[in-house]
Simulated scan of single mutants.
Amino acid sequence: MEKKDLTSGIVLVLTGAAFFAGSLLLPWKDTGYDWFGAPGLVPAILAALLVLCGLRLILRSRKEPDFYARLSAAETPLLCSDEDEEDVSGEGTAHPAWMHREGPRAVLTVTLCCAYVLLLGRVPYMAATAAFITGFILLFRGAGILKALFIGGAASVSIWFVFYKIFAVFLP
């Protein structure tokens, strides 16, 4: 059993439950809102999905204790190749040494998110979002530069289109 999955799953379930409770406090039956247009609907759906993701982690930690061993033994690594990378575990894992420690990854994630927030409003939304997604992919070695740029650009345009054009949500 991966203790991190169990702990993360419990945190996600509790966070999702708290967000769901908060979404119930938003207006649902006030005049001017149909049930599908209520401000609490989307947060409730997202909170329920967060709870489901947490439950999946909890179940995986209990039912598939060898999940990470099978993942590292796979021929095609998910994150990056093992060329010129340190192997701290000695088991032939495909991740660089720093990816095995949560501290640096968490600090990099928070730093990247803060930089994104600072860019919003100063740089056009699509450019900031594309830079954030591309940076995240490159930082965590999810793909090469061209593929990361393509994914970042495509995701940025897709997000803008869905929220701005379809849902008429004004973006920063």
Rank of each mutant, 00 (worst) to 15 (best):
V11M: 07
M99W: 06
F167R: 08
E64T: 05
L112H: 04
L50V: 11
S23A: 12
L149K: 02
Y164R: 13
S72Y: 10
M1W: 11
P65Y: 02
P96F: 03
V110S: 05
E75F: 07
A21E: 10
L14N: 11
S61T: 05
V107L: 11
D5T: 00
I137H: 00
W160F: 06
A148F: 03
L25F: 15
I159P: 06
A17D: 02
F150N: 10
Y116F: 08
A148S: 14
I151H: 03
A21C: 15
D66P: 01
L59W: 07
D34S: 13
K165L: 09
L55Y: 04
L41P: 04
G153F: 04
Y164A: 12
V169Q: 07
L57K: 00
P172N: 07
E2D: 15
F36M: 04
G90A: 03
L138A: 04
Y33G: 00
A131M: 13
F167Q: 10
A21R: 09
D87W: 01
F132Q: 03
A97E: 13
K3H: 08
T111L: 13
F161P: 06
K147L: 14
A155W: 12
A97R: 05
I151N: 03
A18M: 10
K29V: 14
P104Q: 00
P39L: 11
E85I: 09
C53L: 15
A69T: 09
L14G: 06
T129S: 12
L6W: 02
K165S: 12
T134E: 09
L12R: 00
L138P: 01
E2F: 03
G144D: 13
L146Q: 14
R105C: 03
L46C: 12
A154V: 14
I151Q: 07
E2A: 10
R122D: 00
M126D: 09
A94D: 01
C113I: 13
K63V: 05
E102C: 15
C114K: 14
G40K: 01
R60L: 00
F136M: 12
A17P: 01
T111Q: 07
L24F: 09
K63G: 05
A94N: 02
R105H: 07
S81P: 10
D5V: 00
P27C: 06
G142V: 01
F36Q: 06
E2S: 12
C53N: 14
L146E: 11
G32P: 01
C113D: 12
K147R: 14
L14P: 08
G153S: 02
T7F: 10
L49A: 12
G37N: 10
K165W: 10
C114A: 09
L138K: 04
G22W: 11
D30H: 04
Y33D: 02
F67H: 04
C80W: 06
L41F: 07
I133Y: 07
A115N: 01
T111K: 04
E91F: 15
K147T: 15
Y125Q: 04
T15G: 15
G135M: 01
E64M: 11
S158L: 15
A130F: 02
A21V: 13
Y68M: 08
F163S: 09
A73L: 08
L139W: 05
K4A: 07
R101L: 05
